[in-house]
């Protein structure tokens, strides 16, 4: 084998290696894109959340118009209680193992929302318990 042939072979090898590297890079890109898509699916994109929001507004509109005016006070108390589902956010902030500022904020949120949840549902039950029919 002469030196020219060796040179030629090494040149083809080098281009092959370069091609391979390109393909690996492409694969890696595809893989990372796949991960991106998966995380997006897990957290839901803004449009689906917004769709839920708008539809829920309509549900709320029709359900609340069907509430009898006599029960508007219990309605306010119970909506107040269920809006404290915001406690979910507090729980997530208070949940991690490490103690930090964010965890304290979470604790405060959980405490305040609990006042509302217990207070709201109990006062609603108290009010509703008073509504009696003619004997």
């Amino acid at each position: 084998m002469n030196s020219a042939a060796i040179q030629e072979q090494s040149a083809t090898l080098a281009t092959n290696a370069a091609k391979l590297a390109e393909e690996v890079e492409k694969l890696a890109q595809d893989a990372s894109q796949l991960i991106d898509v998966q995380t997006a699916a897990a957290t839901m994109d803004f449009l689906s959340l917004f769709t839920i929001f708008v539809l829920a507004c309509f549900v709320g509109f029709y359900v609340v118009w069907s509430v009898t005016p006599a029960l508007h006070s219990p309605l306010m108390a119970v909506t107040n209680a269920i809006s404290s589902v915001i406690i979910v956010g507090g729980l997530l902030a208070a949940g991690p193992a490490d103690m930090d500022f964010s965890k304290v904020m979470g604790f405060c949120a959980v405490t305040l929302a609990s006042v509302n949840i217990f207070g709201g549902f109990i006062v609603t039950q108290r009010m509703l318990g008073m509504f009696k029919k003619k004997k």
């Binding site: 406690i87 979910v88 507090g90 729980l91 997530l92 208070a94 949940g95 991690p96 193992a97 965890k103 979470g106 604790f107 405060c108 949120a109 959980v110 405490t111 305040l112 929302a113 609990s114 006042v115 509302n116 949840i117 217990f118 207070g119 709201g120 109990i122 006062v123 108290r126």
Partner: peptide, 29 residues
Amino acid sequence: TLADPSVVSFELIIAGLVIGGAAGTIIAK
């Protein structure tokens, strides 16, 4: 939410629920 894998420490959560819950119950009654 409590079953979420990121929620691993429960002391503060329970404290918050108990304190807030008791206060809310007393006020509402």
